[in-house]
Amino acid sequence: MLGYTLRRVLWIIPVLWVIATLTFFLMQAVPGGPFTSEKQRPPALEEALQAKYGLNEPLWQQYATYMGNIARGDLGISFDGDRPVSGIIRHSGFISAQIAILSFVVAVTFGISLGTISALNHNKPLDYAGVLFATVGASVPNFVLAAFLSIIFGVELGWLKLLGWGGPPEISDIFNPSAYHPSKMVLPVVALTVLPAAYIARVTRASVLEVLSQDYIRTARAKGLSEFWVVMRHTIRNALIPVLTVIGPIAAILVSGSFIIESTFGIPGLGRESITAVQRRDYGLIMGTTLFYALIVAIANLIVDVLYAVVDPRIRYR
């Protein structure tokens, strides 16, 4: 188990290297550069600009320089205001992480409860209500949801704020109550939560239904265990195995930030940084955000794999 985990951790390095290399050459191949504009600069100025950022060097040399810097932990600068990429990722990542953690907790709690309640009330009105939410929630694109929620709760009712994120902007503010503004937190979290919550609810419902049909549950019931204990001790634990597997990717996707939600609510998060980086051909930031995302995905997958083994001892390592 330990050896397996260690091996998987070591594999992350070549995976990141391949992603870095692919991304590097891909972004160079995409038309337009960070300073491409409709207006033509005089050639001398264009050269000066390229030289300032080392973009006039041969590609392989830029690549070598970049890889060398990364190996030393230097992610370089963003062309957008010359800010260090590591700082951008730290700040925007912190905001996105807050949204992600909140959304994750809400989605998991809500999704699992809803799925379990649905399954335990199989083919009863509560079940249909749950299925209804899960299917409708999963069929509306989140930018539409965000717009509708904004109009209803921000513009028409005026209950909630539509601009910015209500959590602390810096890690140091995390225990400062005045850094929290719940009215700015509700809508982004809800808009981001509905889809994963619906998905988790679906998976949980199916999984609980399946476990409930197993022999050991019948045995437990036959033994005269109360329904409550049957559910708590035997069903949920076993039913969570498949749920765990969908939770991993959901966590990774949430942590990487949602461009759509962040730009709709004007939140300075990682999703917005990574998409605008591509839209502006901000090479340093493209590399930084892609690698960060890859790292998160790799770690999330690893955690899920290990967790999965803990929950289900039958799993064989290969």
């Binding site: 995976v15 972004m27 995409v30 591509v278 493209i286 995905v297």
Partner: peptide, 21 residues
Amino acid sequence: MRFTDIMFSFPDLLFIILLRE
């Protein structure tokens, strides 16, 4: 499997822009 890891974190937006171009 590591290839699938790579594809999962692949900068798909860049890829799509390039492919279209």
